Amino acid sequence: MSTARTVLVIGGGAAGNAVTVLLRRAGLRVELVEAKDDWNATAGSGITLQGNALRVLRALGVWERVAQAGFAFDSAGLTAPDGTVLHVARDLRTGGDDLPATVGIERPRLQRILIDAVRASGADVRLGTRAEALEQDGDGVRVRFGDGTEGRYDLVIAADGLGSATRAAIGITDKPEPTGMAVWRVAAPRPAGVVRTDLAYGGPAYIAGYCPTGDTTLYAYVAEDSRDRASIPPETYADEMRRLASAYGGHWTEIVPHITDPAKVNYTWFDRLLVEGSWHRGRVVLAGDAAHCCPPTLAQGAAMSLEDALVLAELLTGADDWDDALLRAYYERRVPRVRAVVEASVLLGRWQLDGVRDADVPGLMGRTMSLLREEP
């Protein structure tokens, strides 16, 4: 394979950053463009990374930094709304026995680790830049950017997120669909007794939970019916989340007093997306949330994006011809696994929305996580 090949990666989130690092390691020329000037370096509260995500981060060479920056644990607790612990289950190590089952980490810290890896890889990075027009022929793609510049690439990887403009530009009409549930999230100091994820079902929210993200930090979340966003002024976000969270006991009594700054509270709908048929058109291929997304009921969104990057990079660096068959093979390898995660994640939320009392939640989660222990 010629190392003169040039790849454009659109989007500097988990999938875009990861595939950039992996392709640069193989000697390809890679340019990454990200629409936001700050490269999303300060966005978000926390994220739960399970073993199959950690496996990819190890392949990227950043696992040690993630381990130092985050909080590792191997179990999850189920509590009553008043905080009484009902059950503690040992989590499956989906990344292998030599990695923890789960690491919680602040999203900005994870993003900074990935940014540093991209910078160290030698990729060309342009921030505050959008790809506004793509023209394809049999050999590549000419891209015109918002700043008036142009470039020609052998392949374009669209990792530009759930609302991907590239997905629409290449004629893929699939769009994310709301599932009917939404979540409030906030970062807060970690009480000393919080050493794992605990989840409470019931009370004023469908789910109330928290995840440790470091020695002194956690992120907390409550999920409820989705509301019209226009009906919730951003300046009331802290009040709304605090109202819901105040109904929960146990460690919540230590967390709630810190839900005070509306600018630090995030409100997001749960969405579902799975692009069917193929994830490419010509020499433009989707990765991460541009191709699929799911509710965080299994905490697998980032893991699926990271796995996309790993598989796509493996196929591209191992082939002489970047043709339709290769990109089709990427889709066919990824879609059964991604579909299982999307469908399970949506079903877990649907059971809660519909008030299903006899749902086999442990069985569904166990089957799905066992699947993810296999290499992607």
Rank of each mutant, 00 (worst) to 15 (best):
R152I: 00
T166C: 07
V143F: 00
A168C: 00
G148V: 01
Q136P: 04
T197L: 06
G161A: 12
Q136I: 01
T197K: 11
L162E: 10
I170W: 12
A158E: 00
W184I: 04
G161P: 05
E132M: 14
V143I: 00
A158F: 01
R144T: 13
V156I: 05
A187F: 10
G163K: 13
R196P: 05
T149C: 01
T173Y: 08
E135R: 14
T179F: 03
D139R: 12
I170C: 04
E135T: 14
V143M: 02
F145G: 04
Q136K: 07
G138M: 05
P191Y: 12
P176V: 06
M181D: 10
R190A: 12
G171R: 11
R130G: 04
D137E: 08
A168P: 03
T149V: 03
G161I: 03
R144E: 11
A182D: 10
T166Y: 08
T197N: 13
D174W: 02
A192P: 01
T173V: 14
G161D: 08
D147K: 10
D147T: 05
K175E: 15
R185L: 06
V141Q: 04
G148M: 03
M181G: 10
T166K: 09
T179Q: 03
G180R: 06
R142Q: 10
G148Y: 06
E177K: 14
A131S: 01
D139N: 12
V194Q: 02
R130F: 01
D154C: 08
D154L: 05
D160H: 07
P178E: 11
V186R: 06
A168T: 15
V186M: 11
A131H: 03
A192F: 08
D174L: 01
A182K: 03
D147H: 04
E150H: 11
I170Y: 13
M181R: 14
A168E: 15
